[in-house]
Amino acid sequence: MGLLGGTVALASLSGPFIGGVLLDVSGWPAIFLINIPIGAALLLLGIRSMDLSKPKPQEGLAMDWRGAGSFAVAVISFMIFWGSISNMRTDGFSVSILGCICLISLFAFIRAERSHAQPLLDLSVFAVKAFVVPLLSMILFFAALLGVEVTLPFYLEGVMAFTSSQVGGVFMLIAGILTVGSQLVGRLYDKYRWSYYSTAGLTVAAIGLLAFVLLVGSADIAMLLGALVVFTVGFTIFQSPINTEIMRGLPAEKSSIASALNSTGRHFAMTFGASIASLILSIYSASIVKATAMSMTVAVAFCLTGILISVGRRKKIDRNKRGTLILHHLF
């Protein structure tokens, strides 16, 4: 998990650095054109390394078309809904219609899954707190992360007068810490199974974000970068353990569901966090400093909520363990 987390971090956060360099050198079209050779290389690599033979059809497998269709409508309408909210020129009626479509399709999806013999998603997994709690913590953290990623370039360029390449360099610093740190934390987690890794990571990340909020008006770049480093260290402590907790939250035969919901939840959180940050930037468009402070404050709130959820679950587990030990000694 540490190796996977480091690889994902390096890939996702090196994008702003490459994009910044391309903006300074060739302009914005290069950001899209560079995906052509990358896509071609990945296509050739996939053809050579992947098993492309047609799988044998599974007998008795009934596709959940109603569930798949209603879920697709729910996701698409949700994304358009938040995109419309961040666009201050969109009329309220259209936004309300999108919200209603999202809710209705989500309700239809739940009904379809409950009635289908082979549902697209087994809803019973949401009754497993050992799975749901880390999943919610992960969603809250990645919503906070995307708020930072969307807002930070505006602040660095608009307030600190950074070039696009320099902004990319800041993200590469974050990526470097994550790439190295995730593997170290992963090894540490394998050796010492402490229950509060993810909670500690959320706490450190919240402290870093709160420090950034307090320093955002000072324009002290050294202190601001220090706050970002603290946030990144928290991210590093959080990432590998939380992925492991999610995957171990369900039985081995449901590991594919755990993996799918982990990925879906992360992308949902990223979309939600980016939409919230865009909305804040639209509201406070006259002041980048205020917009950045508000976006970072919301990110702190997300992290604190994740901490409360995680600590509440851990306390309940500890109480159950103490009760079991007492009964064991008595009987």
Rank of each mutant, 00 (worst) to 15 (best):
T7Q: 01
A9L: 08
L10I: 08
A11M: 12
S14Y: 00
I18W: 05
G20L: 03
V21R: 06
W28V: 11
P29T: 07
I38N: 08
L42H: 09
L42T: 14
L43F: 14
L44I: 13
R48W: 15
S49C: 10
M50C: 10
K54M: 13
K54V: 14
K56L: 08
P57L: 01
R66T: 14
G69H: 00
A72P: 06
S86T: 04
S86H: 04
F93S: 12
S94N: 11
S96I: 11
S105D: 02
L106R: 07
F109P: 04
R114D: 10
P119K: 02
P119Q: 02
L120N: 07
V125T: 05
K129C: 01
V132N: 11
M138W: 11
I139H: 04
L140N: 06
A144N: 03
A144D: 04
G147T: 05
L152Y: 08
Y155L: 03
V159L: 12
G168Q: 02
F171I: 01
F171H: 01
G176S: 15
L178P: 01
L184M: 13
V185Q: 07
Y189N: 14
Y192N: 03
R193V: 10
S195M: 10
Y196Q: 10
Y197E: 03
A200W: 01
G201W: 00
G201R: 02
L202R: 05
I207H: 00
V213L: 07
L214V: 13
L214G: 08
G217Q: 05
D220I: 04
L224Y: 03
L228C: 06
L228F: 02
I237P: 01
I242K: 05
N243M: 13
G249N: 01
P251Y: 13
P251L: 11
S255Q: 08
S256V: 09
S263E: 13
G265I: 10
R266N: 15
I276H: 02
I280A: 03
L281F: 14
S282G: 15
A286V: 12
S287Y: 11
K290E: 14
S295V: 06
F302Q: 02
C303H: 07
G306F: 04
I307Y: 00
I307N: 00
S310Q: 14
D318P: 00
L327Q: 14
H329C: 08
F331Q: 15
